[in-house]
């Protein structure tokens, strides 16, 4: 971690950045976010396979946006969300210094074994960064399908009624805390649709109608944008398998548009692309 601490001190000392966002130990095995403003704080920086948080999500906050320049410690998968923020006009490239960390894998949210998302990772070595730290990781042949949850396949195999019952059961636990939204790097709306009350499209009560509406709208708003970081599911206090929703939409985006979010800042998400030469063969 010497390199990381050294680089952080350098950035802070030279006043190149006003704030550095990284990881510190949570006192046990795990890691939690650290906000570095002076060199002393920089000493606490760590990076290891317990660094699960996607710190890019802090870049959407107005108080962070107001700073001139911010550095953020990010894994390749986190950088995919930065790429999305770039292409959606939410950050200015010049205002962010990315410390890319090479990463073989992180642990799964319960702290045991390799995280599922790492088995399909194509960016063990960050694809966009101002500096890359850590020893290069040999790129593995990632599974080509983003969907690896055996459960998704099981879900797809279910009848419509069974699936409905499954989700009714799962979503009934939602307490409408919106932690999923707050943790998501791409849920950056100034006013989320669920807070829109003229009219109130989405029932805010924690009842089946409201919970379905909320979770489906959230998933659809991330369709073709979600970069599979898994933060929403990790933070959900009700243990709702939100990644099942996200990943089934990722699968659609890949099948229908050959699209994977967060690799190329120049390309545009398929659902908000309008091309005159589009065949429009879905309009009959």
């Amino acid at each position: 971690m010497q390199e990381l601490v050294k680089k952080a001190k350098e950035l802070i000392e030279s006043k190149e950045v006003d704030l550095l966002i990284g990881y510190q130990s949570d006192g046990e095995k795990g890691a939690k976010p650290l906000f570095v403003k002076n060199t002393q704080q920089a000493e606490k920086l760590i990076f290891n396979q317990y660094c699960l948080n996607n710190l890019v999500t802090y870049l959407k906050r107005p108080d962070v946006k107001a700073l001139k320049k911010v550095a953020v410690v990010a894994k390749g998968c986190d950088i995919r969300s930065f790429v999305m923020l770039l292409s959606e006009n939410q950050v200015s490239r010049d205002a962010i210094f990315i410390i890319g960390m090479t990463c073989d894998h992180v642990v799964s949210p319960d702290g045991t074994g390799e995280n599922e998302k790492c088995t399909t990772c194509k960016v063990h070595n960050p694809h966009l960064a101002d500096v890359v730290l850590g020893a290069p990781v040999p790129e593995k042949i990632a599974k080509d399908k983003p969907v690896h949850y055996a459960q998704l396949e099981k879900l797809n195999a279910m009848s419509q009624e069974e699936r409905w019952a499954f989700w009714q059961e799962e979503l009934s636990r939602c307490i409408r805390c919106y932690a999923c939204r707050q943790a998501c790097p791409l849920c950056y709306c100034e006013r989320c649709i669920v807070d829109f009350n003229t009219p109130q499209w989405i029932d805010t009560r924690s009842n089946p109608r409201g919970n379905f509406a909320w979770n489906i709208v959230r998933a659809l708003h991330l369709a073709g944008r979600c970069i599979n970081c898994g933060e929403c599911e990790r933070v959900c206090p009700a243990n709702i398998p939100l990644m099942l929703l996200n990943q089934s939409l990722q699968e659609e985006a890949q099948e229908k548009f050959a699209w994977e979010a967060g690799y190329d800042p120049e390309s545009q998400p398929p659902l908000t692309t309008f091309r005159k030469e589009d065949d429009e063969d879905f309009i009959r």
Binding site: E88, N89, Y188, C189, Q268, T272, T273, F274
Partner: peptide, 13 residues
């Protein structure tokens, strides 16, 4: 007041 300038509307218009 609430627009975040994500450009969705700009791209689809």
């Amino acid at each position: 007041l609430t627009c975040v300038g994500c450009q969705n509307c700009i791209r689809v218009c």
